[in-house]
Structures are given as structure tokens and as C-alpha cells.
């Protein structure tokens, strides 16, 4: 299991590096798909089957496709021609190493770091539990409904920004 995790982690990190370093924007989007699929594998390794498939459905099936659409629709030249680094690159390198070191230090001093996760009881259905939690008034019913309102807000906002109402005038 640890070996699988390490392989997946290496694949995710390598894909992530390729996303930022690849010159071709569609290649970058495809490397992003690879990284997102790796995250889905991580969810599956954690026994979170629902999260794993949702990761593929939403992130690969919708968001990555939307990225590719956006790249193809906005740019004439699908290549990044400018320099990849500027002269302050070493500052960001130091900052990232410091952040990584700080996070690693904090996590290693946390007591839960070395514990393995508890076993899931036999017959426990995570999806049903999630559904009940989403509906029940003493759990997440308000966030559930607010999520719907937020999705509508996103829908209206996206259409307002992206849509050019040319045909509105010709309508009788």
C-alpha cells in the first residue's frame, strides 16, 4: 500500500511540474489531467470511493475539458513563448522550501501524524451516510441548499460574463 502511495505521489508531482513547465498549453492541460487522476487514485487508496469517482467526473470530465475549451477558444497561438523564469526566481524557490519545511515540521510534531487510520466497520456505507448527513437538519442541510444557490449564482455570473447577447435584438 505504501509503495502504491509513493508511486502515485511521484506521478502527481511530476505531472504538476510538467503542467507549469510545458510550453504547449494543451499539453499542460493534459498533464493537469494526469495529476488530477493521480489525486483520484489517492482517494481510492484512502477507501474514499465516492470522492475518487467524483474527482474523475468533475475534475477530468468537466473542469479539464473546460480548460481545453478555454485554451482553444481564447488563444490564437497555443504556445507560451515568453521566458519561463524571471530574475526573482530564487526568492520564490527559497519561499517554497521554507513553507515546505515549516509544514513538514508542524505535521511531524502533530500526534496524529504517525497513526494509521482506523478500520472502516464492515457493512458501513459511506454514500448513504453522506446522503443522510446532507439532508438531516442537525447536520448539513443549510450548506446543501446554499450550495444550490451558489451554483445558480455561478451559472448566472458565468453566462453574464461569457455570453454576448447579439441575438437579443433580432427577437420579436
Amino acid at each position: 500500500m505504501t509503495i502504491l502511495f509513493l508511486i502515485t505521489a511521484v506521478v502527481i508531482l511530476a505531472s504538476a511540474v510538467m503542467v507549469v513547465s510545458s510550453r504547449n498549453l494543451v499539453h499542460a492541460a493534459l498533464w493537469l489531467v494526469s495529476a488530477l487522476f493521480g489525486v483520484a487514485v489517492l482517494y481510492a487508496l484512502l477507501d474514499a470511493g465516492f470522492m475518487a469517482v467524483v474527482q474523475v467526473v468533475i475534475y477530468i470530465g468537466a473542469i479539464a475539458i473546460l480548460f481545453i475549451f478555454a485554451v482553444m477558444l481564447t488563444r490564437r497561438e497555443m504556445r507560451d513563448t515568453g521566458p519561463g523564469l524571471n530574475k526573482n526566481w530564487w526568492v520564490s524557490a527559497v519561499m517554497s522550501i521554507l513553507t515546505f519545511g515549516g509544514l513538514a515540521y508542524l505535521l511531524s510534531s502533530w500526534s496524529g501524524f504517525s497513526q494509521t487510520s482506523a478500520d472502516i466497520p464492515v457493512g458501513f456505507d459511506a454514500v448513504t451516510a453522506l446522503g443522510e448527513a446532507l439532508i438531516s437538519p442537525d447536520a448539513f442541510v443549510l450548506p446543501f441548499e446554499v450550495a444550490s444557490v451558489m451554483l445558480v449564482a455561478a451559472l448566472v455570473g458565468a453566462v453574464y460574463i461569457a455570453f454576448n447577447p447579439r441575438i437579443g435584438d433580432t427577437r420579436k
Binding site: 465516492f50 469517482v53 467526473v57 477530468i60 470530465g61 468537466a62 479539464a64 475539458i65 481545453i68 456505507d125
Partner: peptide
């Protein structure tokens, strides 16, 4: 027998969509 079987079907469809856009591009 996955307990998220139907979403797995949708997820496989997502990969199919990706393959078509890859082929076309």
C-alpha cells in the same frame, strides 16, 4: 460490485470525452 457503480459509469464517460478531444486536437 462498487457502491458507486453508476458514478463510475459517468467517470468512464469522462475519459471517453477526453480521448475524443485528444484525437481531434
Amino acid at each position: 460490485d462498487l457502491n458507486v457503480g453508476l458514478l463510475y459509469l459517468v467517470a468512464a464517460g469522462a475519459i471517453g470525452t477526453l480521448s475524443i478531444i485528444m484525437a481531434g486536437w
